[in-house]
Measured scan of single mutants.
Amino acid sequence: MQRVNMIMAESPGLITICLLGYLLSAECTVFLDHENANKILNRPKRYNSGKLEEFVQGNLERECMEEKCSFEEAREVFENTERTTEFWKQYVDGDQCESNPCLNGGSCKDDINSYECWCPFGFEGKNCELDVTCNIKNGRCEQFCKNSADNKVVCSCTEGYRLAENQKSCEPAVPFPCGRVSVSQTSKLTRAETVFPDVDYVNSTEAETILDNITQSTQSFNDFTRVVGGEDAKPGQFPWQVVLNGKVDAFCGGSIVNEKWIVTAAHCVETGVKITVVAGEHNIEETEHTEQKRNVIRIIPHHNYNAAINKYNHDIALLELDEPLVLNSYVTPICIADKEYTNIFLKFGSGYVSGWGRVFHKGRSALVLQYLRVPLVDRATCLRSTKFTIYNNMFCAGFHEGGRDSCQGDSGGPHVTEVEGTSFLTGIISWGEECAMKGKYGIYTKVSRYVNWIKEKTKLT
């Protein structure tokens, strides 16, 4: 034993070699072989497995989906700052455009905790909710729209109204504003409101030439003092309507412009014939205590009207009353817009006519005020429907199939267009061939041609 100890002390290297040989010859039971080890760690190889990531292109799944990435790591994937920024906006807080917040056709661009709407022409605001041009839906104005110097929408209202708090709607500024039905039992019968379409306001006024200088022999019209197929109006439903009495009662109609003036057809009036105007009328054979009678003290036909040349060209006249009318729910003026808007309103496509005229061709006159909704007829169809001249200051309205029309005794009465609950004068009943005849239409004086003249002559002093 002493000898062994001496050998170990003198030859430590020998001992180490012996131990190493023993270990190498022993069977290893701690580690699995290569094949079995792979069965336990069965993990798919990654895209760049075996390579240094710093030297390969980034992978979106590896960089940002398996674990949260930084902007720089995302930049490695896209290799483009702009594309990385677009991805980053949604990656950080989701897609803010998912709810489609942009209105009126706006395009949404996502941002971090926010979004941006790219608005089409005519709109602005956070969600493109603000109209900035009158060309689109009248700028959301209830009545009139004008573009300011910086191309912003400025709404306005006709006389007797003021802008509401929203700067879009119009509200009454006087007790009985024009064009409004205020009798409670008839307010439910107000005709369907007309909503502004998209309009090209630059070209809204037709490029028409008034044929002022045409000389033409007097034409022989049949029954051209021209509501057939209409309905009984309720008291106060058309408070701007008046009836004219002269040699015979209810020979023509008219509309209240203001307390002192009536507008009617020029062919209705004769110099030297006494005319009485009755406002607030409903049943011409009954006294309903809503009527107001006034005498006409002055007749002003349009300066281009000449019955000797043509009885229905420039067929418009103004009547001055001896005493002002007292405005109330049964006696209310009709609204008159400017030339541009009167023309736009007419193009809405349908209007209402009213009167006490004959209820059928050569038949009896109506006792109760009649009204009828009539569609506008395109000019080409209008011209083809008659052998008589249709001037540019006239328009056609009615039904091709016949059966409904204005008729004798309705002449001078109103053709009105309702705009968001307020009625505007767009025409004056003038003439036609018979009444409600198939293929024939009622012919009306186009008020847009005469609004400046009306307003100039009827100013209240």
Rank of each mutant, 00 (worst) to 15 (best):
R3I: 13
S11H: 14
G13I: 14
T16Y: 13
L19S: 03
L20R: 02
Y22Q: 12
E27C: 09
L32P: 04
N38L: 11
K45M: 03
N48K: 01
E53I: 00
Q57P: 01
G58C: 04
N59L: 03
L60V: 09
S70P: 01
R75E: 05
E82N: 09
E82M: 05
W88M: 08
K89W: 05
K89T: 12
E98A: 10
N100C: 08
N104G: 04
G106Q: 03
D110W: 10
N113W: 05
S114A: 13
E116V: 13
W118V: 14
W118F: 10
T133G: 11
C134E: 03
I136H: 14
N138F: 05
R140F: 10
C141Q: 00
C145M: 03
K146M: 14
N147H: 13
V154W: 11
C157R: 00
T158G: 05
T158A: 10
G160V: 01
L163I: 10
L163D: 01
A164K: 11
C170E: 01
P172S: 07
P177H: 02
C178E: 01
V181N: 07
T186A: 13
F196C: 07
V199L: 08
V199T: 15
V199I: 13
L211T: 13
N213G: 10
S217Y: 10
S217K: 07
F221V: 08
V227F: 14
D232Y: 13
G236F: 05
V242T: 04
V242G: 00
V242Y: 00
V243E: 03
G246F: 05
V257Q: 00
V263S: 02
T264H: 01
V269I: 12
V278P: 00
A279D: 00
N283M: 11
I284M: 09
I284P: 07
E288M: 07
N295V: 08
I299W: 07
H302L: 01
H303K: 10
H303G: 07
A307V: 07
A307F: 08
A308R: 12
L318V: 07
L319D: 00
T332S: 10
I334Q: 00
K339W: 07
T342G: 05
F345N: 01
L346R: 04
G355V: 08
H361W: 07
S365F: 07
L369Y: 13
Y371C: 05
D378H: 07
A380M: 09
S385K: 13
S385W: 14
F395M: 01
C396D: 01
G398M: 05
H400A: 12
S406C: 08
G413T: 07
T417R: 02
G421L: 04
I429R: 15
W431M: 14
E434V: 09
C435V: 03
A436L: 09
S448L: 02
Y450V: 01
V451T: 06
K455C: 04
K455Y: 05
